[in-house]
């Protein structure tokens, strides 16, 4: 029974090194998802996403005059790149994680592997973050250059940090609808972004502590040195903890949301009519 012995040995290997085994599996899925993203249509959409912020900044510059004042440029670029571009990129990369596999008939073949479901969530998350950070960074460069703002390196570095945190935080957030309602994931994610991130996140209450947008806004204010100049009513919309706490809060949120998504994916069942 060579087959039986081999299976036992391999089973033991995976059991002995579960973390290494899971990481290898997640990297495999991430590589596969990145390859899948590199299609002409996806690249064309990404190109629009990359050029769109610079075009808006140029339009504002024509009205307000060049160079755009630093604070206005930072606010504008923040709204366009770490918020709009990142959220849109995540909607097309993270949301379809389960629905795409169901449609292609690959979910069942992934789900019957020991690391399959959790690697699918973690690997797709990694690919979505890499893709979003790449698109966001490429969008940031022309937007900053076109603005002609003073301190471009400062604006660039602050925004780059916010892009990374936005991609990770919102990617983990969108993983939840992706596993709970895979076929309505995009609509549910837009709803979640509006209700949680942009409504609850703006409430001066405890609930906004659990949003990524509060952390990003707080880091933006800190990074651009705006805190002392903010009116009292706007101070309520940010958190006064140091930047390290804001980053840590996002990492905790990412861990919790991804962990929850993995648990749900492990337990999720689809009737044969849905699992092709």
């Amino acid at each position: 029974m060579a087959a039986v012995d081999a299976a036992d040995a391999r089973g033991r290997h995976a059991e002995d090194q579960p973390v290494v085994s899971l990481l290898t599996s997640a990297v495999t899925i991430a590589e596969f998802q990145l390859r899948r993203m590199l299609t002409r249509s996806r690249l064309a959409v990404a190109a629009i996403g990359i050029l769109f912020p610079a075009a808006v900044v140029a339009a504002v510059g024509r009205t307000a005059g060049f160079p755009i004042e630093r604070d206005l440029a930072a606010l504008l670029i923040y709204a366009l790149v770490p918020e709009a571009v990142c959220v849109l990129a995540l909607l097309v990369t993270m949301c379809p994680v389960v629905a795409d596999e169901l449609e292609r008939g690959t979910w069942i073949h992934v789900a019957v592997r020991p690391n399959g479901r959790r690697a699918m969530i973690l690997g797709t998350f990694a690919a979505a973050v890499i893709w979003t950070v790449s698109v966001g960074t490429l969008a940031l460069i022309p937007a900053v250059l076109v603005s002609g703002t003073e301190e471009p390196m400062r604006v660039f570095s602050v925004m780059l940090g916010l892009i990374v945190l936005s991609a990770a935080g919102r990617g983990a957030l969108f993983a939840l609808p992706a596993v709970i309602v895979p076929k309505r994931a995009m609509v549910a994610s837009v709803g979640l972004a509006l209700v949680v991130e942009y409504l609850a996140g703006l409430l001066p209450a405890v609930i906004n502590q659990a949003t990524v947008s509060l952390r990003l806004r707080s880091l933006l204010v800190e990074g651009m040195g705006w805190r002392r100049r903010l009116p009292a009513e706007v101070q309520l919309l940010i958190d006064t903890q140091p930047p390290s706490v804001q980053v840590l809060a996002v990492l905790v949120l990412v861990t919790l949301l991804l962990g929850l998504a993995v648990v749900i994916a492990e337990r999720r069942q689809f009737p044969p009519s849905e699992e092709i």
Binding site: R10, F32, R35, R104, G105
Partner: peptide, 17 residues
């Protein structure tokens, strides 16, 4: 899952690989 192999009618083989 470590001990079982599964083949279905719809192969679900990724086109790009």
């Amino acid at each position: 899952r470590r001990r079982i192999g599964y083949v279905s009618a719809t192969t679900g083989v990724p086109d790009r690989l």
